[in-house]
Design a binder for these strands. Structure first.
Lengths: 131, 131
DNA sequence: CGGGATCCCGATAGATACTG
DNA sequence: CAGTATCTATCGGGATCCCG
């Protein structure tokens, strides 16, 4: 089996591709984590500080939650974890080939979101002026 | 305000487009419902019979669950509901313009899923033979 | 610094029964 | 046919404290 296929064993477990997709990105931060890793490896803390809860209080993600999301993404074979084994601890996460292949899809989701979901966007204002 | 903007009021409520996308498709059946409506209106029962729970038992969706998902999609302005007011009841659901604009994104998710998520796909077998 | 352990809570899915 | 009502089990997210 090729290495790509090897890493995707856990991924190939669904009957319906759309339902499967829904399942693997399920979790509040998974898509954003993958997106944050698109330009190279990031450390645990960097990911944490980059992710806000989305609420008004702009709090950071609870470590238990982030840790679980990262573990699930690893189990799915979408990201790799590298522990430098130093003191103080240093751990880096990066996308696998499978994870990288997800970037174009997420980019499309992002583009759609910019057009339809974000409040007070430029497009939104243009639309108002056009009426 | 144009009609498109009018229908999207409830949609434009997020700061982060990716997080927003994750939120609106949250729910076990939302993406599949939208996809099932891509070729025209469908009745409540048709949608229900087309959706399997995904588990081995291939059971149908509980009416309470489907009803809620449909209601949420309506609130988001992604689908429309038409009640024919007859006896026996007849209700049809169809995509709004906003909902239709989601189809290309879902198609991409579907394509990725076929390549990476579905077990025993043709691609999967080719990959095994290649080793 | 990068987590794990524990506790809590609201949300969500499902089963079942019922109705206009 | 197209839902609603009720109840229950489970899950996911968050808070807090702790550790090597």
């Amino acid at each position: 089996m090729t290495s790509a296929a090897k890493g995707s064993r856990r991924l190939r477990q669904f009957e319906c591709p759309v339902y499967g997709f829904q399942k693997i990105i399920n979790g509040k931060y998974k898509i954003r984590i993958i997106r944050d890793l698109q330009h190279g490896p990031r450390r645990y803390g960097e990911i944490q500080h980059g992710l806000l809860t989305g609420a008004e209080g702009t709090k950071e993600v609870a470590p238990r939650v982030l840790s679980r999301e990262l573990k699930e993404l690893r189990t799915l074979g979408l990201i790799d974890r590298r522990d430098y084994g130093e003191a103080p601890p240093k751990v880096e996460y990066k996308l696998t080939a499978e994870g990288e292949s997800l970037i174009p899809v997420i980019s499309m989701m992002h583009a759609w979101g910019v057009q339809h979901l974000v409040k007070d966007s430029i497009l939104n204002k243009l639309d108002i002026k056009r009426e």
